[in-house]
């Protein structure tokens, strides 16, 4: 049997790792984006109360490696009496960390937003949440799609860190197969191929949004 045959015989290990990585990625991407948008919404208005705490939180996250946050949640918090599974700790870390990055991307764009459009919405009687959801957020997404796409790819790659806190994702699958059968080269080539595939898929998705934006006169950000 060649090395590739050995790998093929354990394709279910890859598939479950792939599935877990996709699940980690999809779930935390959606939640992190919601969290980021929520923080930018809280910064709306002329004198938002949460401006300073949010600023500290966002800047703090941007100065930390992702893994140290995962360490904090998984290894550190039990000493404070908070215990969670590696999976839960991983998802929470991904959401908090990338939520802050999404918030920063959207906030930076919001700061350059033409005030007139917001006034037009206020003058028409839009409530604050509806205006944010229907007028501001769609434009922020169209304008920052390039940066959001990069951040999604970073999020995807950060899921691999979770192997270190024992989450059974894609990289963990390659690692365990390579140690069981001693075929690291083949195992990792397959896994890197998977990551590449998802990244290319994400890039295509961003291009699609780009076409949607170009039709509306939004240039590339």
């Amino acid at each position: 049997m060649s090395n590739w045959d050995i790998l093929w015989s354990s394709y279910d290990v890859f598939l479950s790792g792939f599935y877990n990585t996709l699940k980690l990625f999809g779930l935390s991407a959606v939640l992190a984006f919601l969290m980021g948008s929520g923080m930018v919404f809280l910064l709306e208005g002329s004198r938002p109360r949460l401006k300073i705490p949010l600023r500290i939180f966002i800047d703090g996250m941007r100065m930390l490696p992702f893994l140290i946050l995962a360490y904090l949640l998984y290894y550190g918090l039990p000493s404070a009496g908070i215990r969670m599974s590696a999976w839960t700790a991983g998802i929470i870390a991904l959401v908090i960390y990338h939520g802050a990055y999404f918030a920063e991307i959207l906030r930076g764009c919001r700061a350059t937003f033409a005030q007139g459009q917001v006034e037009a919405a206020i003058a028409q009687g839009f409530s604050q949440p509806k205006m944010f959801l229907r007028i501001i957020l769609p434009q922020l997404i169209l304008k920052t799609r390039g940066l959001l796409g990069n951040q999604l790819i970073i999020l995807l790659k950060d899921t691999a860190f979770l192997v270190i806190i024992t989450v059974r994702e894609l990289t963990a699958a390659a690692s365990s197969l390579s140690s069981t059968y001693f075929i690291p080269m083949e195992a990792f080539i397959v896994v890197i191929g998977f990551y590449w595939l998802i990244s290319i898929g994400l890039e295509l998705f961003i291009k699609m949004i780009g076409r949607f934006g170009a039709k509306r006169g939004f240039e590339n950000a």
């Binding site: 790819i153 990792f188 590449w196 990244s199």
Partner: peptide, 11 residues
């Protein structure tokens, strides 16, 4: 750019 650092290091 698509490969996670952890995966690359292990590889």
């Amino acid at each position: 750019r698509a490969t996670p650092l952890v995966t690359l290091v292990l590889f």
